[in-house]
Design a protein around this nucleic acid. Structure first.
Length: 452
RNA sequence: GGAGAGAUGGCCGAGUGGUCGAAGGCGCUCCCCUGCUAAGGGAGUAUAGGCUCAAAAAGCUUAUCGAGGGUUCGAAUCCCUCUCUCUCCGCCA
């Protein structure tokens, strides 16, 4: 969420900058609503002040045993007027908030301007893709050849975009996650966290997935009040009819996390943290669930794009002055994993049009996949500045003055499934076996090679 | 799932319709006193928003006592709904 003060004072500029993200700011609508809000709020608060003053008078008079009927008559008409004003103000503010929640973050000045992913800028490159003297195969062919990867059965169990691994491949998958976690906790100073995989709507609003990207999430409805079950009981039925509650079932639903960024970042939601506790560096290994709505036909083969995948996430919650250093650092932490695994990659600075909703700046790390003869995204590291913190009301207490919004940085360190894909493809041998990167040997009980 | 208790400021805790953003204590900050890592005295100590203002400062003002709604001139206090926490029983990895 952007600072509404900024929109009030410099709307044209904000609209211009957001246009580079392919976002059309509803300028007219916003201005109209904002003007309305100002009028309504001034008016409403004036009425409230009058009511409060009168009520105080009544209290005083009564305590002195005086007659209050004249004051009562004075405020008699106030009630309806006030109620109406309050309702209208609330409606206007809700509309304004709805707009505000859907505006993407402002790109940082260092972000290259562009119209699509072709305008992303390569920042650096590490490693040299290996030269093969045989026909390289993709991970599906390799995995199935080893008898350790089974998509047909995964499809039988669940459907498209799920995978099933067995034996040493399943173990390698687990080993990767362990290795990543160990590296980040022991060498990079992150605190490991075990987090819920189901989160509420408020958490998703905090990090920016809701309300705009609901269709990308798996939602778990809760069976409860308001449903047919409750209405069947006579007593409850009466209750439901007479209840003044504005209870909304969808607000109560839980969602499967699309990334551990959601629970990790939301740890500081509605909190004012001590200055000394910064930076907060958190990591977690979790499954991630994505509906992949709108990506039909893309990456249908293999385990590149799945409804369920594992990821080791890195999150930093930092002082605003240090967030760009933190972004560089965190990106480096993710790169370390690829370096230790000896996987060639490049780092891309995403252009304005290709960045995610909450990001002010994003580096994508892309790993080399020989069969695709291309670099593919394996990590995405973003500085969200105060965008998420403002939604979450995540602040820190300064030496002096008001609490200030934190900055949040997150990145994958790394996507486990895609790392596994990269290992299968980069470390494949002509006989169909796959060598295991040296750093993983201890995690594999000394196994150095996947064989059929 | 059944029965009961509860949710107040950084923490503890008072407050059952009126001057309460909230007594008191603890903690913290500043000052004073004290020649010694103690004790005492004083002051301060929530958050968000709006308006006036070029801005700052300042002033005025609104909201918030788990959340939402209601009753009332007036709600931390009364009523309704929900959420969460705790205790006992049941079930369960």
């Amino acid at each position: 969420m952007l600072d509404i003060q900024l929109l009030r004072t410099d709307l044209a500029h904000v609209a211009r900058v957001l246009a580079t993200r392919n976002y059309i700011f509803p300028t007219t609508e916003f201005s109209a609503l904002e003007a309305e809000r100002k009028n309504l709020q001034t008016y409403t608060e004036e009425l409230q002040a009058r009511r409060n003053a009168a009520s105080r008078q009544i209290g005083n008079a009564k305590s002195r045993g005086e007659d209050v009927s004249s004051i009562l008559a004075e405020v008699a008409s106030l009630g309806d007027e006030l109620r109406q004003a309050e309702a209208q103000l609330q409606k206007t503010q809700a509309a304004l908030q709805q707009i505000l929640l859907q505006i993407p973050n402002l790109p940082h000045s260092s972000v290259p301007e562009g119209i699509n992913e072709a305008d992303n800028r390569e920042v650096r490159r590490w490693g040299t893709p290996r030269a093969f003297d045989f026909m390289v195969r993709d991970h599906v062919s390799i995995g199935e050849g080893l008898g350790l990867l089974d998509f047909p059965t995964a499809t039988k169990l669940s459907g498209a975009r799920f995978s099933l691994m067995t034996g040493a491949l399943a173990r390698l998958h687990r080993a990767l996650a362990q290795f990543m976690l160990d590296t980040h906790t022991q060498e990079h100073g992150y605190t490991e966290a075990y987090v819920p995989y189901l989160v509420n709507a408020e958490s998703l609003r905090g990090t920016g997935q809701l309300p705009k990207f609901k269709e990308d999430l798996f939602e778990i409805p809760r069976k409860k009040a308001g449903s047919v079950e409750v209405l069947s009981g006579q007593e409850n039925y009466q209750d439901a009819l007479t209840s003044n509650s504005t209870y909304q079932p969808e607000d109560d639903d839980l969602y499967l996390i699309p990334t551990a960024e959601v629970p990790l970042s939301n740890m500081v939601r509605d909190r004012i943290v001590a200055l000394e506790s910064l930076p907060i560096k958190l990591t977690a290994h979790t499954p991630c669930f994505r509906s992949e709505a709108g990506s039909y036909g893309r990456d249908t083969r293999g385990m590149i794009r799945q409804h369920q995948f594992e990821k080791v996430e890195l999150v930093q919650i930092v002082h605003p002055q240090h967030s760009y250093e933190a972004l560089e650092e965190l990106t480096g932490h993710a790169e370390t994993i690829l370096q230790k695994l000896e996987l060639p990659y490049r780092v891309m600075a995403l252009c304005t049009a290709d960045m995610g909703f909450s990001a002010a700046k994003t580096y994508d790390i892309e790993v080399w996949l020989p069969e695709q003869n291309a670099f593919r995204e394996i990590s995405s590291c973003s500085n969200c500045e105060a965008f998420q913190a403002r939604r979450m009301q995540a602040r820190f207490r300064k030496e002096k003055g008001k609490p200030e919004l934190l900055h949040t940085i997150n990145g994958s360190g790394l996507a486990v499934g895609r790392t596994l894909v990269a290992i299968l493809e980069n470390f494949q041998n002509s006989d169909g076996s796959v060598s295991i990167p040296e750093i993983l040997h201890p995690y594999m009980g000394g196994l150095v090679r996947l064989t059929a």
